[in-house]
Structures are given as C-alpha cells and as structure tokens.
C-alpha cells in the first residue's frame, strides 16, 4: 500500500512537478480556493470546495483553435496545435473526475475534437475521496459517490483520521504516476477513513420523467425568477461544455477563439435577424435543467450533472440545480407522469 502523510501532499506535488508533470491542485488564492498549477510555496487546500472545476485544464475558458497570417486581401492558414502538457489533476473532487465522462462524450460523440483529446490523453486523474460534504453536495443523487473512482486513474483515500493518504493506482496512467512519485510515497499500512455521508436528495429518473411531460409547465417561471442571466453557474460547472467561436485580428494576423459560453445568456441563441427561440430567462433556465437531466440522458445515456453543487455555492442570485431538482421531484409526486 502506497501512503504519505496528509501534510506532505505538497511534497508529492513537488516530486511530480520535478518528474515533468504539470500538477493541478486545489490551492489558496486570495480568499478563494481554486484548482491551479502547482508552484512551490502555494498552500494546498483539500478542505474547501474550489471555485473552478477541473475542466479548466482540458477545455480552457479561451483557446485559439485556428490562426491565419493576413496578407492584404488574402490569408495563409497557420498550424494550430495547442500545448498538451503531461498533467496530473491531483486531489481533485470525485465529482470533477466523474465529469470527464460527459466531456469525453461530447467532444467525441461524432466528430473527434483533437484539441481536447490531446490534452485528455496527456492527463492523469487522481481524485481525493471526500470525507466531508456540505449542504449543496448531491453526487449520490446523480449516480456518483464521495469515494467514486469514475474517471480516476488513481484514487487518494484519507486515512488514519485524516493524518495520512493512501494512493491507490487504478490504471496504467495511475501506475506511471505512482512510479514517478517515487520517494514521496512510502510503503506502509493505513486505515482508510469513512467517506462523507451524502444523502440522496432526489431521483434523477423521476426528474427526467417529469421533464419529458412538462416543457410548458408554469413551474419554470417560478424556478427562474431569481436568475439574472450570467454565466457563473455554467463556467463553474464541470460538465457544461457550450462554447462560442469568435475571430479577432490585428493587421497581420487573425485568430479564431473558442470561448466558454452559457445558455443562460440572452444572446446565446439569438438569431442575426433578432428572433430568439429562447426569449426569456425561464426558457433559458429550462434548457439548462432539460439539457442536464433530459437531453443528455436521452442522447448519451449519461446524467449531465455530477452533483458538485458549485452552481449553488457561486450563484449570486441563489439559483441551485439541487433545489430545482428537488422541487421538480416534489411536483412529480403531486402529479405523477402519465403512464403510457
């Protein structure tokens, strides 16, 4: 059994960085905790929920996807091959690791996005089992668990009352990481701590059944009153993958950018002619819920939410996917879906 002192996680990060990994860990940054590239001296924080999700390192918020040299009225395509550094997502949340199934699917379900795939192939995922959860955590309601190994190449278990960590390799990438960790890990024994108790809060199948019959329900107005139409939830969400493409140019060079986008923005679906198929925030918030709990399950046999709860923790207006789903399930109980 490979173990290390919980206080020595930064030594492990140092060792892996020395072995050529870009090490992504949750660190203190001002008054927030965020996943960031490890640099010596940073403070690793596994006890607070990071404001960003691990997707930042596979699907960055802005990325050049095409590039041209401009020559007067003509142009010359330039090669675009974004760096895909060997990366370890270390001590990320199991709900972040679980989100990779969604991202892998969307970026490969038909056309294969090699920009994403190159980074994905170079990434080793090492989540840390959660021994504590807060009121917004609901992984167990969407098929996850605080000790889930979904999407993981290796798993870190807190042990001996939080004083030690067990590193359990699960895949070849995980084994390679253990090897690279070398002396930062010791052979020994430790007793894994119990994972956090995350009670199931709703049944996604019941939510999905209600959604199928209730596109026009009055509840959408009520659920969306508080939404002010920003992108905070989508940008923090580990499974949200919508993006915009925008060109920017100097006199001699242009780039085509892929920027994160959100279905919460009014402009997201607005046609050039002015028509908007999702004309109000109720239609936009409905799309967000439908997408995660109806469209994605129907299309890809996945739940499009990993229950991380970031949307609720960060929303300045108090919107919350958990609350929406529990409310929908309540509604479903009141008026059961039509049996056909």
């Amino acid at each position: 059994m490979k173990i290390l002192d919980a206080s020595k996680l930064s030594d492990l990060a140092d060792t892996l960085a020395g072995a050529g990994y870009r090490v992504v860990v949750p660190v203190q940054d001002g008054d927030r905790v965020r996943y960031a590239e490890w640099s010596p001296g940073a403070t690793i924080r596994t006890d607070a929920f990071p404001v960003n999700s691990a997707k930042d390192f596979l699907f960055p918020r802005s990325e050049v996807i095409d590039r041209y040299q401009l020559d007067g009225d003509d142009f010359t395509p330039l090669e675009v091959r974004p760096p895909a550094p060997r990366t370890v997502l270390l001590a990320v949340r199991p709900c972040d690791a679980a989100s990779l199934a969604m991202l892998d699917t969307i970026f490969n379900w038909d056309y294969e996005d090699d920009l994403y795939n190159a980074r994905r192939a170079a990434t080793t995922v090492v989540p840390l089992v959660c021994t504590r959860a807060d009121a917004q955590c609901f992984c167990t309601s969407v098929g996850g668990a605080p000790d889930s190994s979904a999407g993981a190449d290796a798993l870190l278990h807190p042990a001996d009352g939080g004083s030690r960590l067990i590193l359990e390799p699960l895949t070849d990438k995980g084994k390679a990481l253990v090897e690279a960790a070398g002396g930062a890990l010791a052979d020994g024994k430790a007793a894994p701590d119990a994972p956090a108790d995350v009670p199931a809060r709703f049944d996604p199948d019941k939510v999905r059944a209600w959604l199928a019959d209730n596109f026009e329900a009055d509840l959408w107005d009520l659920l969306s009153y508080a939404c002010l139409g920003c992108g905070a939830c989508a940008y923090a969400c580990p499974t949200c993958h919508c993006f915009d493409m925008q060109d920017e140019a100097t006199r001699t060079e242009s780039v085509r950018l892929r920027n994160w986008d959100s279905c919460g923005f009014a402009l997201f679906t607005k046609h050039a002619g002015g028509h908007n198929p999702r004309p109000d925030q109720a239609a936009r918030w409905r799309n967000r819920v439908m997408h995660k709990f109806s469209y994605i399950p129907e299309r890809f046999d996945l739940v499009g939410c990993t229950g991380c709860g970031r949307c609720a923790r960060l929303c300045p207006a108090g919107m919350a996917m958990l609350e929406a789903c529990t409310r929908i399930e309540e509604e479903a109980r009141k008026a059961p879906a039509h049996e056909s």
């Binding site: 918020r61 002010l228 959100s262 300045p316 207006a317």
Partner: peptide, 12 residues
Amino acid sequence: AKCTRCYACRAA
C-alpha cells in the same frame, strides 16, 4: 487574470 467573463458582476 482570474476573470472568466461570466459577467456575474454585470448581472448583479
């Protein structure tokens, strides 16, 4: 550098 352009500031 931290700004993700979520425009929560504008929305609020």
